[in-house]
Each structure stands twice: as C-alpha cells, then as structure tokens.
Design a protein around this nucleic acid. Sequence first.
DNA 1: TAAAAGCATTGCCCTATGGCAATGTTTTAA
DNA 2: TTAAAACATTGCCATAGGGCAATGCTTTTA
Lengths: 189, 189
Amino acid sequence: MHPLLRDYFRKRTDADEHVLEKISPYFEERSFKRNEYVLREGEVCKHNYFIISGCMRLFTINKEGVENTRYFAFEGKFATCFTSLISGLPAFENIQSLEKTTVLRIHRDDFYYLVETEAAVNKVYRNIMESAYITTQRRIYDFQGADSLERVQWLLKHQPTILNRLSNKVVASYLGITPYTLSRLKAKL
Amino acid sequence: MHPLLRDYFRKRTDADEHVLEKISPYFEERSFKRNEYVLREGEVCKHNYFIISGCMRLFTINKEGVENTRYFAFEGKFATCFTSLISGLPAFENIQSLEKTTVLRIHRDDFYYLVETEAAVNKVYRNIMESAYITTQRRIYDFQGADSLERVQWLLKHQPTILNRLSNKVVASYLGITPYTLSRLKAKL
DNA sequence: TAAAAGCATTGCCCTATGGCAATGTTTTAA
DNA sequence: TTAAAACATTGCCATAGGGCAATGCTTTTA
C-alpha cells in the first residue's frame, strides 16, 4: 500500500497491516495532465480518487459560462463527486486536475463493498463524510453575509495554500467573486 | 417506538421490529415552546433531536448581530449540531424551535454507541451524513453566484414550505439577503 | 381586549462589486 | 525561441441590494 494512503488509514482507524494489504489491491494508480478533465458533468462518477501528488477541483459551469468551484483536493486527500457516487446518477459537477496529478483510484462498487465489509473502510468513509459535512457547514456560515474582503481574509487564514498555489481565476470561482475583484483586493493586502 | 421514527428507520434500513424495540428506549420525548433555544453557541451539543411536530432551525449570530440560518428541520427529520456532537467541542451555532415543537432526543453517547453496535443505526447515520452532504453541496452551488431573485425562486422550487410557513426574517437569514429585499421580491412574484 | 412589541412594507440614498476595455505579464506549444 | 493564448491588473461606469426611517399590520401578553 502506498505510504500516503497507509498514513491516511493509520490516522483514522486501528487497521493492522493485514487489513491494509487486503484493501490495497482495490486501488489502482492513474495520472492526469494539468487541466485535464477527470469527470464531466453528465457522466456518472465511477471512482473515488486518493491524491498522491498534484491537485484537483470540483466545479460547475452555469448557463452563462460562469464557473463555480466548491472543493480543492491536494495530496493526501480523497476527491470524488459523492453525489453521483452515492446515487449512481449523472454528476452535475466536473472534476479537473489543476496540476500534473497522480492518484490512486478505487471503483465505486469496490469502495462500497469495502464500506460494508471492512470496518476500517466504514470508519474512513464516515470520517470523510463527517469532515466534508463540517467543512461545508463552516463555509456556508463563513461566506454567507461576508463581503469580498472578508472572504479573501478567510481563505488566507484557513487555506492559504489555495491562494498561493492556484490561479486567481479558480480562486475567485471558489470565493464567489470575480477575478477582477480578487485582483483588486490582493493589491490592498 | 413512535410511528414517525419507525417509518424513518423502515425507509432507510431493513431493521426488524426486534431491533427497533431495542433502539427505541434510547430516545426520550421533550417539548419546546415557540422560539425557545434548544442549544446556544458555546454549549456542547449533547443530543440528536428527531422532530415529531413543529420546526427548528440552526443558525449563527455574528458580531454585528446579523443572523445566518443554515438549516430548517421539520417533522420527521433529525436536527442537531453535528459539528459539536462529533467533536465534543462547543458549538458555534444555535438551535432554536420556531414553533411549539415536540422531539425525541437521544444522547450523543447512546447515539454513537448504537452507530458502532447496531447496523441499522450505522446505516441511518451514514444516510443522514450523505443527505446532509448532498443538500449542502447543492446549496453552495445553487446560491453562489445567484442573485437575490434567483435565490427566492430556488427556495420556491426546492423548499416552498419554508417560504409559506416561516417569517420573512428567518427566511431572509437563510437566503443570505435582508428582510427588506425579500419583501420587495415577494411583491414582484 | 388594549397596549406593547415585533414584524412587514416601501421610499430614498449610498456603497460594494460586477462588467467592460485597455494594457501588461506569464504560460503554452510549435 | 517565438508567436499565440491565457491570465492579471487597473480605470471607468452601472446597478443590485444594503441600511435607515416612516408607516401600517399582527401577534403576544397582561
């Protein structure tokens, strides 16, 4: 099992080496180029992706062509469109690599099989859901009613990596402001 | 077991009557007056609440005194501050009944004990998390970049009950707009 | 059942931010 | 290595929606 993934399980479960080796073969390594689409809106999401290196984002594009990003995943994190993975219905969002990215991916059928049969995976899944839930709630609270400057400051405080590592364009689409406004605000900090 | 709660488990698990009767005693009935605080920011959330009748909301109040509502729970739904329930840390949000409300509440220790030991409760918990996750993602996508009118129309389409049953004040705090703007928009529909 | 408190509505003004356009900079790809 | 494409910056203007205040309505409670 890849050391990053091993760490992930070790931190969240008490799974021993035997269990980890049982889980390991369900994951397969894949690579994506910079800006490659991993999933497009309308497709059914078939995999859960564990990021070894690089970065991905989940986002939508509305009818006016405006992008709206809701999640960035860096090394050592899972990324997938859970809405589609859970329901088996077509995704309404896209997944895209933002850098050259290597992942370990697991097929949804295998993943949910392990959730049902391996306590460690059940626990990890619960943990992913709980974290995602908490993060998202926090974002709703912190962003709603906050003006542009407060949002940028929030990002600086909570996820500075995003601000340093990614383009203004995608950061702005995460903050719900225009790249123009973001550029103006950065000049003021 | 209360019929509403029984239905809840029946819809989401294959738990038989025996299991339900085992779970049932962990829940106790409570009542709240209209506008009563069930949990205040800073307190640790000790219970998960299943609503039999009435309605509750989860919300924060910022330093300027502006309220920000993120969730309304009506009959047949669970409501709790999961962030605090999961972590055991003080809640940063409030829970308040908006009508005379009757609930079945379960203590967090009992709840997580059952999550670990009763497959039906594990499944229900997973389901709650998954649903909450999906709902929240959807809200982020649908609200971010949407103007006031679009938000009201969204509510009319997805959760009309909220618009009919609750005051403009709390609805506005859910939509992230002022009661003034909501009033003006309603006049135009 | 009357007084008070709390909400809803609407007019007026003001500000933050969006949108466009012009210019400069960085990245990509041949 | 260079041309093209994509992105960033900044000035200018337009506008959605916030905030306040005045008025009227509804709900609470004593």
